[in-house]
Amino acid sequence: VRLVQFQKNTDEPMGITLKMNELNHCIVARIMHGGMIHRQGTLHVGDEIREINGISVANQTVEQLQKMLREMRGSITFKIVP
């Protein structure tokens, strides 16, 4: 398990697509080339996201998580399992 932190201070999309796997874990499905996450190089396709800013992603839908990420500003921390 590791923590990945980055800054999001604009309306620029993060450039990641999330999916739920068969165990209902949140997985990074795709990283858009040239997007914020791609430029930082901190997340990778297949990484499992456990928490966003200390909030568990368990029992949340992809749509709920994407909305939460769109609305966040400032420092964002993901707890991930590579």
Rank of each mutant, 00 (worst) to 15 (best):
V1T: 14
L3R: 11
L3F: 13
L3W: 06
L3I: 15
V4F: 07
V4L: 11
Q5F: 10
Q5E: 15
Q5P: 05
F6P: 00
F6Y: 07
F6V: 15
Q7D: 15
Q7P: 05
K8V: 13
K8G: 04
N9A: 13
T10K: 11
T10S: 14
D11N: 15
D11E: 09
E12K: 07
E12V: 06
P13N: 12
G15H: 02
G15N: 03
I16S: 00
I16E: 00
T17L: 14
T17N: 07
T17D: 15
T17C: 10
L18N: 00
K19M: 08
K19P: 00
E22P: 11
E22M: 08
L23T: 15
L23R: 15
L23N: 10
N24W: 02
H25G: 10
C26D: 01
C26L: 08
C26M: 08
C26G: 01
C26E: 00
I27K: 05
I27F: 08
I27H: 12
V28F: 00
V28N: 00
V28D: 00
A29L: 05
A29T: 08
A29Y: 05
I31T: 04
M32A: 15
M32F: 15
H33L: 06
H33T: 13
H33K: 14
G34T: 06
G35E: 05
G35R: 04
G35V: 02
G35C: 08
M36D: 10
I37W: 03
H38T: 03
H38I: 04
H38W: 11
H38V: 02
H38R: 04
Q40G: 07
Q40L: 09
G41Q: 06
G41E: 07
L43S: 01
H44T: 10
V45M: 11
V45T: 14
G46L: 02
G46A: 02
E48P: 00
R50E: 08
N53Q: 05
G54P: 00
S56P: 14
A58I: 14
A58V: 11
Q60W: 09
T61R: 07
T61C: 06
E63K: 10
E63Y: 08
Q64M: 10
L65S: 05
M68R: 13
L69G: 03
L69A: 03
R70G: 13
R70I: 08
R70E: 14
M72S: 14
M72F: 15
M72C: 13
R73H: 10
R73G: 11
G74Y: 02
G74T: 03
G74L: 01
S75V: 14
S75K: 13
S75M: 08
S75W: 10
I76W: 04
I76P: 02
T77L: 09
T77S: 13
F78Y: 02
F78N: 00
F78V: 05
K79Q: 12
I80Y: 05
V81Y: 11
P82S: 12
